[in-house]
Amino acid sequence: MRLTVNGTEHEVDVEPDMPLLWVLRDELNITGPKYGCGIAQCGACTVHVDGLAVRACQLAVGDLADGAVTTIEGLAQPDSLHVVQQAWIDHQVAQCGYCQSGQIMQAAAFLDLNPEPTDEEIDAAMSAILCRCGTYPRIRAAVHAAAAKLQEG
């Protein structure tokens, strides 16, 4: 089976019902996407498939078709971080950091679709991703900052 992750094509030999998350982590050693719950509750496994935020624990690799996968490792440009990553660093968001790949991938895809979000829209979109350390106040601030930055161009 073939799949494209962060622009690189890979060949894996797994059952088609294996979730993408476990292909990435245990077959390809791409470990930015995390296992937290396996049941679409925590969002720690969030990646982009064709630019949309997807819970990798829920997507069977066999259903990926030609979808191009981007993980947190592939979000930045070669010589600069993604606006969302930079906002996260500026706001010192992460504590343990385990949820943050998912938070950042969710925020990046969300701002792509909705570059001028309201507070309520940010709350709704980012509530999909659980953070047990409670970094939410800074996530809120960082998403706002990233949105402002994107509007500057």
Partner: peptide, 27 residues
């Protein structure tokens, strides 16, 4: 003052115990 582990935690580079792999490892 900023945390020295902040950037790796925002780029996916930070390795937790669950992320390590060794040759020949089984799960």
């Amino acid at each position: 003052l900023t945390r020295i582990d902040m950037e790796p935690k925002c780029t996916g580079a930070e390795k937790y115990g669950i992320d390590l792999a060794f040759d020949g490892m089984l799960f």
